[in-house]
Computed example of a mutant assay.
Amino acid sequence: MYDNLKSLGINQPEDIDRYSLRQEANNDILKIYFRKDKGEFFAKSVKFKYPRQRKTVVADNTAQGYKEIHEISPALRYVIDELDQICQRDQVEVDLKRKILDDLRHLESVVSHKIAEIEADLEKLTQK
């Protein structure tokens, strides 16, 4: 699992926190950030440089007929797919935790309102 990340030398992909991707000239720069250990001020990170792939494609409505384009390299695309799996998994866990806490707060509110309603009914019975 995560063979593309392991081929980059990342042996513990579960320690990845986030990543950034930017373009510089004809290169894509991928920076991977790892979770901070206790007592660390800055997260550890590694940087990778991928040359952009050049392609010649048929141009629309131009006299030349063909034009050259630059796009992300296939190897980088596979790495990003794996990084998205890791980073989105973490987001799903955070969202699930938030949902459970929201459900718990709602249940707490419903129960306290029901208790107040029952106490009010008891009070009516004792007043008669």
Score class of each variant (00 low, 15 high):
residue 1 M to Y: 10
residue 1 M to V: 05
residue 3 D to I: 09
residue 4 N to F: 09
residue 5 L to W: 05
residue 6 K to Y: 05
residue 7 S to T: 03
residue 9 G to W: 01
residue 10 I to A: 10
residue 10 I to L: 07
residue 10 I to Q: 06
residue 11 N to W: 03
residue 13 P to M: 06
residue 14 E to G: 05
residue 14 E to H: 02
residue 17 D to F: 08
residue 18 R to E: 15
residue 19 Y to N: 10
residue 20 S to P: 05
residue 20 S to E: 15
residue 22 R to K: 15
residue 22 R to V: 14
residue 23 Q to R: 15
residue 24 E to W: 06
residue 25 A to C: 04
residue 26 N to R: 15
residue 27 N to D: 07
residue 27 N to M: 12
residue 28 D to C: 13
residue 28 D to A: 11
residue 29 I to T: 07
residue 29 I to L: 08
residue 29 I to S: 02
residue 30 L to A: 01
residue 32 I to R: 08
residue 32 I to T: 12
residue 33 Y to H: 12
residue 34 F to Q: 09
residue 36 K to M: 13
residue 36 K to A: 15
residue 36 K to H: 07
residue 36 K to N: 14
residue 38 K to H: 01
residue 38 K to E: 03
residue 39 G to S: 09
residue 39 G to T: 04
residue 39 G to E: 08
residue 42 F to H: 09
residue 42 F to W: 11
residue 44 K to C: 02
residue 45 S to K: 05
residue 48 F to D: 05
residue 49 K to A: 02
residue 50 Y to P: 11
residue 50 Y to T: 10
residue 51 P to I: 05
residue 52 R to H: 03
residue 52 R to L: 07
residue 52 R to V: 01
residue 52 R to P: 00
residue 52 R to C: 03
residue 55 K to D: 09
residue 55 K to T: 12
residue 57 V to A: 13
residue 58 V to A: 06
residue 60 D to H: 06
residue 60 D to L: 10
residue 61 N to R: 03
residue 62 T to A: 04
residue 62 T to P: 02
residue 65 G to N: 01
residue 66 Y to E: 12
residue 66 Y to R: 13
residue 67 K to I: 08
residue 67 K to A: 07
residue 69 I to A: 13
residue 70 H to P: 04
residue 72 I to V: 05
residue 74 P to M: 01
residue 74 P to V: 00
residue 75 A to C: 09
residue 75 A to P: 01
residue 76 L to N: 11
residue 77 R to C: 04
residue 78 Y to D: 14
residue 80 I to H: 03
residue 81 D to H: 10
residue 83 L to I: 10
residue 83 L to F: 06
residue 84 D to M: 12
residue 85 Q to P: 00
residue 85 Q to H: 14
residue 89 R to H: 10
residue 90 D to E: 12
residue 90 D to V: 07
residue 90 D to M: 02
residue 92 V to C: 08
residue 92 V to S: 12
residue 93 E to Q: 15
residue 94 V to E: 14
residue 94 V to S: 04
residue 94 V to F: 12
residue 95 D to V: 01
residue 96 L to I: 13
residue 97 K to V: 06
residue 98 R to K: 10
residue 98 R to E: 13
residue 100 I to S: 06
residue 100 I to M: 13
residue 100 I to G: 02
residue 101 L to M: 12
residue 101 L to H: 00
residue 102 D to Q: 13
residue 102 D to E: 15
residue 103 D to G: 00
residue 103 D to W: 03
residue 104 L to D: 02
residue 104 L to E: 09
residue 104 L to R: 10
residue 104 L to V: 11
residue 105 R to Q: 08
residue 105 R to P: 02
residue 106 H to W: 06
residue 106 H to L: 06
residue 108 E to P: 02
residue 110 V to E: 07
residue 111 V to M: 07
residue 113 H to C: 03
residue 113 H to I: 07
residue 114 K to Q: 12
residue 114 K to D: 02
residue 114 K to N: 10
residue 114 K to R: 09
residue 114 K to I: 11
residue 115 I to W: 02
residue 116 A to I: 03
residue 117 E to F: 04
residue 117 E to P: 00
residue 119 E to G: 00
residue 119 E to K: 13
residue 119 E to Y: 11
residue 120 A to V: 01
residue 120 A to E: 07
residue 121 D to R: 11
residue 122 L to S: 08
residue 122 L to N: 15
residue 122 L to Y: 04
residue 123 E to A: 12
residue 123 E to Y: 10
residue 124 K to E: 13
residue 126 T to I: 08
residue 127 Q to R: 09
